[in-house]
Amino acid sequence: MINHVQRETTSLTPLHVNLATMADLTGKGLFSTKTVCIVAGASRGIGRSIAVNFASKFPPGSLVIALSRDVEQLTVTKTLSTKASPAVLSVTHVFDQGTLDQHKYETLFKDSLQGRSTSEFQQAMIIHNAGSVGSEFCRNLTDVNQVSHYLNVNVAGLVALNAQFMQVFKDVPSKVVVNMSSLSAVQPMASWGLYCSGKAFRDMFMRTLALEQPDIRVLNYAPGPVDTNMFHKEGIQETKAEDHLEALRAMKKNLLAPDTTVNRLIAILEKNVFESGAHIDYYDEQ
């Protein structure tokens, strides 16, 4: 995702969490048990890196499910994930998070499990990485269909997907939800009104989930400025505000490789001492 090096700090601690329950969950590495892991937006960039690197961390018999609209690139992700860890099954499922088809949401995980039972797994994990930028000044967002589609992809689709995840895997003992966030969730950026608002919504939704469900681990992870197609195309080529565009151009020489930021995410999940619902940036002190 797109982010900036300069950050504003914010307190994102969920209130009234059952601390006794949380104490039982923290400090235990999240890659040590047989896991079914869903990665939304897994066809390239950060999502592909997550699918591949996470597959290499989970024990044999685990399952990584890569979701995306792009059939061809999903095949590449599957090949790389299988090569990284032959003992972990990697499967793909073509899924458009912005097409709010109730039937597709309700059958997604059953189809993706390919006959395997949820009872086989000790842990279920979902990484919400699918999303878009959609640069435009707030005053110009007059096309209700454009606005609606953006919110479907980045907000409504995530909420519905996450709820299905919670329902389907409700009996799996351990559950982990990771939202790929951004500095934009806590700091406004000109001509990125939809992007910033969508990211802020997602962060608050995850904080609320953490409050409601103290038995699961929830993380908002801002990956820093990463060398991805989204940065170069939706960021550099489409950003309307000139000052913001100049800031993005200046960051090009300091972009992180997808594997670099994903390895930082892996380290956070392995250490597993974060407050559930917290917003952690790549550049935060370890």
Score class of each variant (00 low, 15 high):
3 N>G: 11
3 N>W: 02
8 E>S: 12
9 T>L: 10
19 L>V: 15
20 A>T: 14
20 A>K: 13
21 T>C: 11
22 M>K: 10
28 K>L: 14
29 G>R: 10
29 G>C: 13
32 S>D: 14
32 S>V: 08
33 T>P: 02
36 V>H: 05
36 V>N: 04
37 C>H: 11
39 V>S: 07
41 G>Y: 07
44 R>M: 13
46 I>K: 02
52 V>R: 07
53 N>P: 02
57 K>S: 09
58 F>G: 04
61 G>L: 05
61 G>C: 04
62 S>R: 04
63 L>I: 13
67 L>Q: 06
68 S>H: 07
69 R>E: 09
69 R>Q: 10
69 R>V: 09
71 V>K: 08
71 V>F: 07
74 L>P: 11
77 T>Y: 07
77 T>L: 12
77 T>P: 10
80 L>Y: 05
82 T>G: 04
83 K>R: 12
85 S>D: 02
86 P>Q: 10
88 V>T: 08
90 S>K: 06
91 V>F: 02
91 V>W: 02
93 H>N: 14
99 T>P: 00
103 H>S: 12
104 K>G: 10
106 E>H: 12
107 T>D: 10
110 K>Q: 14
112 S>T: 06
113 L>Q: 07
114 Q>S: 13
120 E>C: 06
126 I>E: 03
126 I>C: 03
126 I>Q: 03
128 H>T: 01
130 A>S: 15
130 A>D: 07
130 A>Y: 11
131 G>V: 03
131 G>Y: 00
132 S>I: 15
133 V>Y: 10
134 G>K: 09
136 E>L: 13
136 E>C: 09
138 C>T: 14
142 T>R: 13
143 D>R: 06
148 S>V: 00
151 L>A: 01
154 N>D: 07
155 V>Q: 00
156 A>L: 12
157 G>F: 00
162 N>W: 01
164 Q>G: 01
165 F>P: 05
168 V>I: 15
171 D>K: 03
172 V>M: 02
173 P>D: 13
173 P>C: 08
175 K>V: 00
176 V>W: 02
180 M>I: 15
180 M>N: 06
182 S>Y: 05
186 V>Q: 07
192 W>I: 06
193 G>D: 05
193 G>L: 02
195 Y>N: 08
198 G>F: 01
200 A>T: 08
200 A>V: 03
200 A>Q: 04
205 F>V: 00
212 E>F: 00
213 Q>L: 04
217 R>I: 06
217 R>H: 04
218 V>N: 02
218 V>W: 00
219 L>N: 06
221 Y>M: 04
222 A>C: 12
224 G>Y: 01
228 T>N: 09
231 F>T: 07
232 H>M: 09
232 H>E: 10
234 E>T: 08
241 A>F: 04
241 A>N: 15
243 D>W: 08
243 D>R: 09
245 L>I: 04
246 E>M: 12
246 E>L: 14
247 A>K: 15
248 L>T: 11
248 L>D: 08
251 M>R: 06
254 N>L: 03
257 A>D: 11
258 P>V: 09
258 P>E: 09
259 D>L: 01
260 T>R: 00
265 L>E: 07
273 V>K: 12
274 F>P: 06
283 Y>T: 08
283 Y>A: 13
285 E>D: 15
285 E>Q: 09
